[in-house]
């Protein structure tokens, strides 16, 4: 199987394009997805290829087009909904929480909602607090939906395909700051990446850095710095938050005996807290130090660039948290 070098946004686009060719019940809707080619150009060329019946520019009404898409999915289509950013999904939260996530269960399995919601998520350089939420923490709480957050173009490609083929609602958390990242992507329209399987982005034996999406790259930078200090860090890229690959997390922690969880968004009650809980419940006797956390500081995101950099997890904070877990401060 050959590979091609694609940017993250191109990998997402290739996956959607190929799946729309493969299955004519797949269609795309959202603000600016057609004529404007997507606010972040993820959907570039799709209107031209598939026409306005399958690439639908909607009015500015997230709760509206989320509901429209859920209704279309209930009667047999497979919509891909683009929010301009996950921040704006807040006004559509009821449709996702009370409808997409529950309709299969509430209907006794009579109805299904095969639907993909996708958007950039998390920090995006000086866009203020209302554009910088890491919304996966809100959504990963909900049974009935799946939440994925790829960090590489190959995973973006393979997981987007899995998402579109899935019979359940799938929420894809992308990152504006990763859209231009280049990487090798399999040249195979049937390449898929299963959900609930983490990848080991870097093998190491001294400490486990556990992350997803953009901060995986922060962890890799931190691991390089730690290596210079004689510390061999393992980096786990979860890729999927619901379902969660508990086994890979525990296997890594049982090897390294130490863990730091790194993510965007606030730590209070978030996905990181869930992971820390599972580590203490299932690997208590393997731990040599308390589980560390690096996340957004517990404040709304400031606009100022210097302040913003303090709030977002960065390499020095991850290095320091790793050293603390190794009692090497």
């Amino acid at each position: 199987m050959g590979t091609r070098s694609l940017r993250f946004r191109e990998a997402l686009r290739a996956a959607m394009l190929e799946e729309m060719e493969r299955d004519d019940s797949v269609f795309l809707l959202g603000e600016e997805v057609g004529h404007y080619q997507g606010a972040y150009k993820v959907t570039e060329g799709l209107l031209e290829k598939f026409g306005p019946k399958r690439v639908i520019d909607t009015p500015i009404a997230e709760s509206g087009f989320a509901g429209i898409a859920i209704g279309a999915a209930m009667v047999g289509l497979r919509p891909i909904v683009e929010f301009m950013t996950w921040n704006f999904s807040a006004v559509a939260f009821d449709q996702i929480l009370n409808n997409a996530a529950k309709l299969r269960q509430m209907s006794g399995g009579q109805l299904q909602v095969p639907i993909v919601f996708r958007a950039p998520n998390g920090s995006a350089r000086q866009v203020g607090s209302q554009h910088s939420h890491a919304m996966e923490h809100f959504y990963a709480h909900i049974p009935g939906i799946k939440c994925i957050a790829p960090a590489t173009p190959a995973d973006a490609y393979g997981m987007m395909k899995t998402a579109i083929r899935d019979e359940n609602p799938v929420l894809v958390f992308e990152s504006e700051t990763l859209y231009s990242l280049k990487g090798d992507v399999p040249d195979d329209p049937d390449f898929t990446v299963p959900f609930g399987v983490a990848s080991v982005a870097r093998e190491g034996k001294d400490i486990s850095l556990i992350s997803w999406s953009r901060p995986v790259h922060v962890c890799l930078d931190a691991a390089a710095e730690l290596a210079r200090q004689g510390i061999d860090a393992e980096v786990i890229d979860l890729r999927s938050l619901r379902p969660l690959d508990e086994e890979t997390i525990l296997r890594s922690v049982r090897k390294t005996h130490r863990a730091v969880i790194v993510h965007e968004g606030w730590s209070y009650g978030g996905v990181g807290a869930e992971i820390a809980d599972r580590i203490q419940r299932f690997a208590f006797d393997d731990l040599d130090a308390p589980v560390g956390r690096v996340s957004f500081l517990d404040v709304p995101m400031p606009y100022n660039a210097a302040l913003e950099q303090h709030v977002i997890p960065n390499t020095p904070r991850v290095v320091e948290a790793a050293r603390a877990a190794l009692y090497a401060r």
Partner: peptide, 12 residues
């Protein structure tokens, strides 16, 4: 919430 869903079903 069921009303936009009805419109979406009709669009489908």
């Amino acid at each position: 919430p069921q009303v936009p869903q009805a419109v979406g079903a009709a669009m489908a």
